[in-house]
Design a binder for these strands. Structure first.
Length: 437
RNA sequence: GUCGCCUUCGUCUAGUGGUUAGGACACAGGGUUUUCAUCCCUGCAACAGGGGUUCAAUUCCCCUAGGCGAUGCCA
């Protein structure tokens, strides 16, 4: 049985870089029909927090990463928080002390006199031993290990110790983690040997640069609040370390589990490419189910006061569909749709300039005249009208289209007018034009 | 400092002992009856350097340089 785990320290939000630890393990569990375990490594008492742990669980759930076992759902190897497993670590540490693999360390007392009751740390005696282990991605790794602390003088285990004990006790079969642990793994292998544990199988993936922990804008929480789609984030995170063989960069990994293999992880540290992320995110917005975007967009539109609860969904979907090609996350929709909901404000200088041209008046008069003879405004009707205005007035190109765009939207940029106008509707178009003729 | 890992277009990458070294993002040009954008087409652009091994090296080996990581009573 494959059992993998995501073992974050609950000290902040997860972002698009470190979500890969959860994602890669989860994908592997899915592929192998194994189990996914969450363990909170909260032994850094200073920085760990309950809220952070909860936030991580929520963010992952939103992405579709769920756990078979963990502090929030329980499981046969509970507890799943390291601060609740302190007795366990103590027990194993004492064993190592007895077997001579470890010794007491009083260096934290500096010049104080050591007595029977003095607190002590426990140091593992690695004796410069050379360890060779196999990594699925990097192959044979050879590393000499120095002595290191396994229990702090406050009774809390260090990461290296707790991780080995827990992975063994929780029957973790594969450890998939960042290559910042490539060297540390030798320590873990040594500890396993000393404790008589079987080492899990290791796979280390490359690190990502350009994603500072301090940059909150790349946290999963923040991306979610901006209305990025979770599928896009999963896709981008996958690309940070793994590429499908056919080179297809937009993909749903859950449909391609067969292809996924940790041994194909990239060995090279990569830079996070925000441009590409934005591009991919936009692709997902364009292809998403319109109802889904509608649901996500409503809160943003309500907040801006563009709509109210009685605004028709059909109308909204039309609006969303016509502007979705210009956004990468749903929140950006509010930058593109004001004129569909509010009266147009013609104060923008460049727009006024267009409208005040003599040619523009000619175009708009003709447009008004033709529109007022129509009963129903469709894209085709609008296109035909534009053509006949051109034919009759001889005005074409920019001089033809800009006044129309300006009068109907108050902007110089936007989607094709023949798509915009039918959504606005005949009545609104006529009244806006009427203001200028 | 010591130890470990890595090094293909600007960026993310595919790939091979003999290839026109492929794709994507970005960028540039063109097209889609106007603009921004979308979409389509075209173009630009890479095997870090030096030694080997070999008939042949981007691919294998060594060295150098560079990058990253570890070296904590952080995880």
């Amino acid at each position: 049985m494959v059992r993998v785990r995501f073992a974050p320290s609950p000290t902040g939000n997860i972002h698009i870089g470190n979500v890969r630890a959860a994602l890669f393990n989860y994908i592997f569990a899915k592929k192998m029909k194994g189990q996914m375990i969450l363990r909170l490594e909260d032994t850094d008492l200073e920085r760990s927090s309950e809220e952070s742990g909860q936030g991580i669980i929520e963010d992952l759930q939103w992405l579709g990463i769920v756990f078979d076992e963990g502090p929030h759902v329980g499981g046969p190897y509970a507890p799943y928080k390291q601060t609740q497993r302190l007795d366990l670590y103590r027990e194993y540490a004492l064993k190592l002390l007895e077997s001579g693999h470890a010794e007491k360390d009083y260096t934290h007392l500096e010049n104080e006199t050591i007595t029977e009751s003095s607190s002590y740390a426990i140091r593992f005696k690695a004796n410069q031993k050379k360890v060779i282990y196999h990594d699925l991605v990097f192959g044979e790794i050879e590393k000499e290990v120095e002595d290191f602390i396994i229990m702090k003088s406050n009774g809390i285990p260090t990461y290296h110790f707790a991780v080995v004990i827990d992975d063994h006790l929780m029957k973790i079969s594969h450890v998939i983690r960042g290559q910042d642990h490539l060297g540390n793994t030798a320590k873990h292998v040594l500890l396993c040997e000393a404790l008589g544990f079987k080492s899990p199988i290791y796979a280390h993936y490359s690190l990502t640069h350009g994603l500072s922990k301090r940059d909150a804008s790349k946290s999963i929480r923040s991306l979610r609040e901006k209305g990025f789609l979770p599928e896009a984030i999963i896709n981008v995170a996958m690309l940070l370390g793994w590429y499908p063989k056919d080179g297809q960069e937009k993909f749903n990994i859950f449909n391609r589990l067969e292809e996924f293999d940790p041994k194909d992880f990239s060995k090279v540290n990569a830079n996070f490419d925000e441009e590409k992320f934005n591009w991919l995110a936009g692709q997902y917005i364009r292809e998403a189910d319109i109802h889904k975007i509608l649901l996500l967009a409503k809160p943003f539109l309500l907040e801006k006061g563009f709509i109210n609860t009685s605004t028709q969904d059909d109308y909204l979907m039309g609006v969303i569909d016509v502007v979705r090609g210009n956004i990468k996350c749903v929140s950006e929709i509010t930058d593109h749709v004001e004129y569909f909901f509010k009266e147009v404000n013609y104060q923008v200088e460049s727009v006024r300039e267009v409208l005040e041209k003599e040619e523009s008046k000619t175009v708009l008069k003709s447009l008004y005249d033709k529109l007022s003879h129509e009963k129903e405004l469709t894209a085709e009707v609008f296109q035909n009208i534009q053509k006949s205005i051109q034919k009759e007035t001889g005005i074409k190109g920019k001089n033809l289209f800009m006044p129309i765009r300006s009068v109907l939207t108050g902007r110089l940029h936007g989607p094709e007018m023949y798509l915009v106008a039918p959504i606005l509707g005949l009545e609104k178009c006529l009244s806006r034009i009427n203001e200028y003729i």
